[in-house]
């Protein structure tokens, strides 16, 4: 799970760069474009076909069809690296899943099963080649927007909950979109956007993000969507009120649980006193004994005490 996220995040940055660089100045609505439809069978011995080729700029639909014979329990979620897109799960019940992309980036991209089990990584992987040239494409990414209404921000127990909606240009929700959250933070002479979390939008295009602030004041929260398949990147910044609930003391920091057990701490309090008392007692005994020895001299002096005891 972690590696997938990281891969997605890093590729998302690549994608964002591409989009910002403006690869497609001559964009036309995606719907107007005839989609290039490709079917890929997922079989016992791997993907069929393993290599697909499309032209740059085309709207591409890849349909994965579950076609296992020997392994009826196999299930897959196909991802296309570099385009940041992920299919629904396919298994014996749900045999088909389709991913859509605008093939705006040339190059070779791997698509494979993302479920981390068995041999999926090795068997179920193929390559999408996006060829440059013809210029016949011109499919454009669908514009998106992130919306965080003031009502979507709530604070409870010091934790800030943000419900971010990811919508397309027709205000339709986009599910399965990864929204990354940042805050502006400055530290030790440096400041910048600090990534504080990432959430995926649900079926209604909403991502619920919970943040435990480590700062107090009005924080600038930035939500970024890096683009996905046919969707363009978008971002939004909102102010959120935050108050740091946690007051760290030494040995009690936000990170690793630390500190000693209470019994040990208490032991530390009384042990030195006990030790000192013991030593003091011993020295008191020394003084007593020396006093005894000194009293020896008084005994024979014919004093009243000496005579009485002798």
């Amino acid at each position: 799970m972690k590696s997938r996220r990281l891969a997605l995040a890093s590729l998302a940055i690549l994608l964002a760069f591409t989009v910002i660089a403006g690869v497609h100045p001559l964009a036309t609505p995606a719907v107007a474009q005839e989609a290039t439809k490709i079917t890929v069978k997922v079989t016992d011995s791997g993907l069929d076909p393993e290599t697909i080729e499309v032209e740059q700029g085309k709207l591409v639909e890849i349909t994965f069809i579950w076609d296992h014979k020997a392994y009826p329990n196999e299930e897959h979620i196909m991802v296309l690296e570099g385009y940041n897109v992920e299919s629904d799960k396919i298994d014996a019940q749900h045999k088909e899943a389709t991913i859509k992309i605008v093939a705006n980036k040339p190059g070779t991209f791997t698509f494979k099963c993302d479920l981390e089990c068995d041999l999926h990584d090795f068997l179920q992987n193929g390559v999408l080649k996006v060829k440059t040239g013809s210029g016949g494409g011109g499919a454009a990414l669908t514009k998106t927007k992130i919306s965080i209404e003031p009502a979507a921000i709530s604070i409870k127990d010091g934790k800030v909950t943000v419900n971010a909606s990811l919508l397309d240009d027709k205000d339709q929700p986009i599910p399965k979109g990864d929204i990354t959250f940042f805050i502006n933070q400055s530290f030790a002479g440096r400041s910048g956007l600090v990534e504080i979390g990432e959430e995926r939008t649900g079926p209604v295009g909403q991502a619920r993000f919970v943040y435990e602030p480590t700062l107090t004041g009005t924080l600038k929260l930035t939500a970024k969507f890096e683009g996905m398949g046919i969707y363009d990147a978008s971002e939004l910044a909102v102010d959120i009120p935050a108050s740091r609930a946690f007051q760290a003391e030494f040995g009690e920091s936000v990170l690793p649980a630390s500190g000693h057990s209470q019994e040990l701490v208490e032991l530390k309090d009384w042990a030195p006193a006990a030790l000192i008392s013991l030593i003091a007692l011993i020295w008191a005994a020394f003084i007593f004994i020396l006093y005894q020895a000194w009293r020896v001299s008084r005994v024979g002096d014919g004093g009243p005490g000496g005579d009485a005891s002798a």
Binding site: A293, W294, V296, S297, V299, G300, D301, S309, A310
Partner: peptide, 12 residues
């Protein structure tokens, strides 16, 4: 210390 071997001294 003025020891004279008295019983009291021995006791102490």
């Amino acid at each position: 210390v003025r020891w004279r071997g008295l019983p009291e001294q021995r006791r102490r």
